[in-house]
Design a protein around this nucleic acid. Structure first.
Lengths: 241, 241
DNA sequence: TCTGCGTAGATTGTTAGCAATCTTGTCAAC
DNA sequence: GTTGACAAGATTGCTAACAATCTACGCAGA
C-alpha cells in the first residue's frame, strides 16, 4: 500500500480544487478520518505540501491552508515573468515542426473560445499554451519551480480569468509569443512572454481585495467549517440532542 | 525542546559544508546516533531537506545526498540568471544611500582581494555582494528560490572559485552591476547581472567532468563511509577481532 | 459589567516497537 | 566458470500510545 503519496496528492488536489477555504485549519485527526489513515501519513503529506508552499505549518499550532495575498501573487508573477521568459526563449530555439503546428492550433482554439465568450475554455487553453511552451523548453529546474508557484496562484489566476475583457487583452499577446517561437526568435519570444505577464501583473494590481467570490463557486464542505474552536471545555460535539 | 528544526539545520549545514560525500546514503539509524535523537525527528528533517532538493528520497530505499550534475548546475544557473536579473533591477529601483555606499565598499574589497590573489576571500565577498543585492531587492519569493538553488550548487560554485583567472574575468562584471544599481538604472542592472551569470555558465561548461577534487578538501568522516553494504548476512560489524 | 487568571480539553509533538521491503551473499544447477 | 534462485538480515514504512502544548471557557475580584 503506497498510502502516503496518494494522500498527499489527494489533499493537494483538494486544496487546488478549492475544497478547503484559504486560511482554514487542517486538523490532523479530521484528515485521518476523511482519508481513512493514520496521523503519521497525514503529517508526512502536510509536510510535503508545506514544502510546496500550499499549506503553512507552525509549531504546536498545526497546519492551515496558506493564504496568498495579492502582493504575494504579484511577487510570484514577477518570478513567473522571469522564468517563463527563459522558457519561451528556449522553446524558440528547440521547437520542432510538430511543436510549431500544435502551438498554432492552440492559438486558433483560443481565438475561437475568446470570440464565443467561453471564458472557462479560454482559461483552460491559456494554461495549455503556457504548459506547452514549458514542455518544449525542456528545462526541468524552471518547470519544477513554475509548478510550485502555479499551485500557490490558483485562486488568483481563477479570479483573473473571470475579469471581463481579459481575453481580448491577452489574445494578441499570446499570438505574439507563438509567432516568435514559431519564427525561432528567442529574444522576441522572451520579450513577448514578459510583456504578456506584465499585463497579468497589471491586472492583478487592479483586482479588488480578493476574498469571498471563490467560496460561492466552491462552498466549503459542511463537515469542515472554516473556523473551529480549539480547546476549552466545550462539549459542543456530544451536546446534540 | 525544538529538536526537529535544529537537526534539519545541522544536517543541512553538514551537507553544505561537505561532511557527506555526494551520493552518500543517509541511513536513519546512523543519523539518530550522530544527532542523539529518534528516527521520527531524522525522518522529518530528511523530508524537509528533500523538499529543498538537497537530498533525494526514494521509497523503501532511503535518503542519499543528491548529486547535482554539471548539466543540472547549468540549468540552475540559467534560473539564477533570470531571478538575479530581476533582483538587480529591483535593487536599482530601491537602493538607499547607505545601500549604495555598502555596495561600493564590497566592490572595493573584492578588487583588493582579487589583486592580492586571495581566492577564498574573493569568493566570500562575491557571495556577500550577490546576497546584498537580494536583500536590497526585498523580493521574498525569488529570495527563497535562490536560497534553495544556492544550496544545490555549493559544490560546483566552490570548484568555480578555484578556476585560475576567474576573478579577473568577473571583477569588471561585478563593477558594472554595482555601477548600474548605484546609478538607479534597472534595465542596465538586469543586463549587467545577466551578462555576469552568462559568463558563470560559460565557465561551468568549460569545467572538467567534476568529481574527486572536493573530497580532497573535505574528506568524508570515517564513521560514515561513502558506500556501505545493505542486507546480506555480513556480520562485518561484529566480526572485528 | 468588565478584566485577569486558572483549568479543562482539544490538538499537536514525540517515542518505541512491529511489519513490509529491499539488498547482498551463498549455494545449487547448468 | 557462469547464471539463477533462495534466504538472512539490515533498513525503511507504518501503527498506536504517551507527553507536551496551546486555546477557550468560566469564575473571582474590582
Amino acid at each position: 500500500m503506497t498510502g502516503e503519496i496518494d494522500v498527499a496528492d489527494s489533499l493537494r488536489d483538494g486544496i487546488l480544487r478549492g475544497d478547503y477555504v484559504a486560511g482554514q485549519r487542517l486538523v490532523e485527526a479530521d484528515l485521518c478520518e476523511r482519508f481513512g489513515t493514520t496521523r503519521f501519513i497525514i503529517r508526512s503529506a502536510l509536510q510535503s505540501l508545506a514544502a510546496q508552499g500550499l499549506v503553512e505549518m507552525r509549531r504546536n499550532r498545526g497546519a492551515r491552508v496558506r493564504t496568498v495575498t495579492i502582493d504575494e501573487a504579484i511577487e510570484i508573477s514577477e518570478v513567473r515573468r522571469a522564468l517563463e521568459g527563459l522558457c519561451a526563449a528556449r522553446a524558440a530555439e528547440r521547437a520542432t515542426g510538430d511543436d510549431r503546428a500544435e502551438l498554432r492550433q492552440i492559438v486558433q482554439s483560443m481565438k475561437a473560445a475568446g470570440q464565443a465568450g467561453e471564458l472557462l475554455q479560454y482559461s483552460e487553453l491559456n494554461a495549455t499554451l503556457h504548459q506547452k511552451v514549458r514542455v518544449i523548453a525542456a528545462h526541468e529546474t524552471s518547470a519544477r519551480i513554475l509548478d510550485q508557484l502555479r499551485g500557490q496562484m490558483v485562486r488568483h489566476q481563477f479570479h483573473l480569468s473571470l475579469v471581463p475583457g481579459r481575453a481580448a487583452i491577452s489574445m494578441p499577446q499570446h499570438e505574439a509569443i507563438v509567432e516568435a517561437i514559431v519564427a525561432g526568435d528567442p529574444g522576441a519570444a522572451e520579450t513577448a512572454m514578459r510583456a504578456h505577464i506584465d499585463s497579468v501583473i497589471e491586472a492583478l494590481r487592479a483586482l479588488p481585495a480578493a476574498g469571498a467570490p471563490l467560496t460561492v463557486i466552491h462552498p466549503p464542505t459542511v463537515s469542515h467549517p472554516p473556523t473551529r474552536p480549539r480547546g476549552g471545555r466545550s462539549d459542543a460535539r456530544r451536546a446534540q440532542p
